[in-house]
């Protein structure tokens, strides 16, 4: 444990970065997923094609390739544009934080597309029809009947998507994001204790996963409260 002294605050700040990436990518992932699902469910052939292409590409490509492509690709484009104005500029990049966040949100968003689509289709037509028969407006039906039911159906898979996001943050260290795995690499450089350092990283991620899992379990219990028999 002694080798770790002096590195605790670095690991702490690395964890903060992990949390930040997670939260930012979570918001983006939901947006991408909802757009993708809406496109797949829309009547527009064109929108469906685009959405299908999106899911096929991001589900069939290794995560690390997407991250590398987004980071180095955007860097090369940015540099080229910048050089038009100032030929002195050698290298300009999108911060790894954002390149990585967008990359993992795009990847997991492609899975979320299917989850949201499935949840939308999974709502029983009976409850929708019943609500319409009671005279509720389309918007009311959507807000009070469809969304709560969709939420309940999507939650287990959504929990898995959140776990994917948190674990994918580790990949962003490859393009130089100073999260925990990156911190560990530096710590190993000075201490020469790779096992200790990577175990610490593993434990940090295990902690994050546990928090997410417990949260989802709590939400699921809340979402299923009407399905429990009276006690």
């Amino acid at each position: 444990m002694e080798v770790l002294s002096g590195w605790w605050d670095d690991f702490f700040w690395g964890s903060v970065v992990v949390a930040q990436v997670f939260l930012a990518s979570l918001v983006l992932m939901v947006i991408f997923g909802l757009i993708g699902a809406a496109a797949k469910l829309s009547d527009s052939r064109f929108a469906q094609k685009i959405a299908n292409g999106y899911t096929i590409v991001f589900r069939g490509t290794p995560e690390i390739l997407v991250i590398l492509l987004l980071y180095f690709g955007s860097a090369i484009t940015l540099t080229a544009i910048a050089q038009l104005f100032n030929p002195e500029i050698k290298f300009l990049d999108v911060p790894p934080f954002w390149a990585g966040t967008i990359a993992i949100a795009l990847i997991v968003g492609s899975y979320a597309t299917e989850t949201f689509r499935g949840a939308f289709l999974g709502v029983k037509p009976g409850s929708i029809e019943a609500a319409q028969a009671l005279g509720m407006s389309t918007l009311q039906v959507f807000v009070y009947v469809r969304v709560p039911e969709m939420w309940r159906l999507a939650l287990p898979a959504f929990g898995n998507h959140m776990l994917s996001l948190i674990k994918d943050t580790a990949l962003i260290s490859i393009i130089g994001l100073n999260e925990t795995l990156f911190v560990a690499k530096q710590a190993i450089g000075t201490t020469g204790k790779p096992f200790t350092m990577y175990i610490v990283v593993g434990l940090i991620y295990l902690g994050f996963s546990t928090v997410i899992t417990l949260t989802v379990m709590g939400l699921e219990r809340y979402g299923h409260r009407h399905m429990r028999a009276a006690t």
């Binding site: 943050t169 580790a170 990949l171 490859i174 795995l181 560990a184 096992f195 175990i199 593993g202 996963s209």
Partner: peptide, 15 residues
């Protein structure tokens, strides 16, 4: 399932 595969690979190879 709770830790990134990349960390697992590093623990085995470097650790």
């Amino acid at each position: 399932r709770g830790t990134p595969i990349l960390v697992q690979i590093f623990i085995v190879y470097y650790g």
